[in-house]
Simulated assay, not measured.
Amino acid sequence: MTKTYFFYGTLSYPPLLERVLGRMPNMRPAFLDGYEPRVARRNGEDLPFPILVPSDLGVPGILIDTETPEEDARLYAYEGGYCLHACDVSADGIGGTVRAQVFLPDEGAWQTGGAWDLADWAETWGELATEAVEDTMASLQDLDFDQIYDRREAMMVRAAARVRARETGPATLRRSAERGDIVVSDRRMPYAKFFSVEDYRLQFRKFSGALSAPMERAVFVSCDAAVVLPYDPVRDRVLLIEQFRVGPMARGDGNPWLLEAIAGRVDPLETPEQTALREAQEEAHLSLRKLVPAAQYYSSPGAKSEYVYSYIGIADLTDDAAAPGGLAEEGEDIRPHLVSFDEMVALLDAGELNNSMVVICAQALIRHRDALRAEFGQA
């Protein structure tokens, strides 16, 4: 038995609707009287989706028909924070109204912001929201709507990482992956907060050409990160930061305060370069003159999804160039250290620089120091 739905918000964006429904339905232009779309707000924060509020303006949208109860379930799951209401909707070309199901918020469940425009939303969020549908739908068997809502930013961060991951690196020596080389038969999410853990049951194409036996693998899903080691080619000094880290603590390290390069999560609407510049301000109150790419890499590919973009940041590292930083709301307490290039090398050789991001940045600086001093070393 088919059902007719009227969509006015993100589900009227064809790529996202196709991803949610599992197919591309016939979309008919329609109009709903008595409402207008407004930006949804919660706790004073604008959110990247709309709600309908009573209004004389009316709202344009689309009508679609589902074909199976499974499609109805997928739509309702995606719109889990709303309730279905039957409304009379004007459909183009029929000269009358159609009874359709409309997702409307419970009264008082959301605050309302400014006017909402589909084209503006699609330009900013369309690609990421469509990519995030995969995580939303995969989470349904393990999480309720409120838990999924609380993870909306983390899912957008992951969606942005997935978009960047389409730009695969070179494959001159390693094999080139093809469709069908990886078969995922099950995916579960037993833990999901700021980070998440995903359990996969999968097969992969072996070098012999055959698929492997089914195997179970767990992945710690974290975001893409940007890391930058500030370097002053005139004074030949670098800036390191120091902070407490819970990973070494959990390992049993007797001193979980690490010397690091500046680093942070690449937010959904940022480039890695923008992240590096922002984090330099947040963590050390430091402005960088230029970013020089150092390396891109998976930090621990056997268990983590994290991908790192690293840079050498050209900076003027005067004695008062940096200050203690970090965001209090994120529990950060960061101390900067200005050291000479030779001191950095000594710390590296002694093992006091003991995390992958700063080690890779330091090695890149050692390799390119002469070139950087020649290009940027004029006072």
Rank of each mutant, 00 (worst) to 15 (best):
A132F: 03
V59K: 05
R42H: 08
Y13C: 04
G108Q: 05
V246F: 14
L288S: 08
K3C: 05
A315L: 07
A315W: 06
L202G: 02
S90Q: 15
G95V: 01
T172S: 13
A276G: 07
S176P: 00
A132S: 13
L240F: 08
P233N: 09
Y8I: 02
A171W: 09
N255Y: 13
I312G: 06
A294Y: 04
I182Q: 04
D120V: 11
Y149T: 03
S305P: 09
F204Q: 08
A30C: 06
E273Q: 14
G96Q: 11
H337F: 10
G180I: 01
E332H: 10
D92C: 02
R187I: 01
D120R: 15
E330R: 15
F145Q: 12
G93K: 12
V234N: 09
Q296R: 15
G180R: 08
L317V: 01
A165Y: 11
S212I: 01
A295H: 14
L21Y: 03
G9H: 10
E375A: 15
M249G: 00
P230F: 08
Y297I: 02
Y35F: 15
P50C: 07
Y5S: 04
G80S: 06
P293S: 05
W125V: 00
G61L: 05
D46T: 01
R205K: 14
D267F: 06
T172H: 12
D150F: 01
F341I: 00
P60V: 00
P69S: 04
D253S: 12
D135Y: 11
L317S: 03
Q141D: 14
F103I: 00
A161L: 02
A177S: 14
L372P: 05
L365A: 08
F6W: 09
I148E: 07
L258Y: 11
F7G: 03
R217T: 02
G331F: 07
A122N: 06
I94N: 14
D146M: 12
Q203G: 02
D150P: 01
S208P: 06
P324E: 01
T271L: 07
S310N: 04
G108H: 03
A374P: 01
E375F: 04
M344R: 08
E127K: 13
V133E: 05
E273Y: 03
A86E: 13
T275H: 07
S185N: 05
Y297H: 05
T271Q: 10
I62N: 11
D72C: 05
I148Y: 02
Q111C: 01
F376K: 10
G254K: 13
P105K: 09
A280I: 00
M189N: 12
T124K: 15
S222F: 13
I314D: 03
H368A: 07
S185L: 00
Y76K: 15
E18F: 00
P293A: 02
V157L: 06
K290S: 10
G114D: 10
R38Q: 07
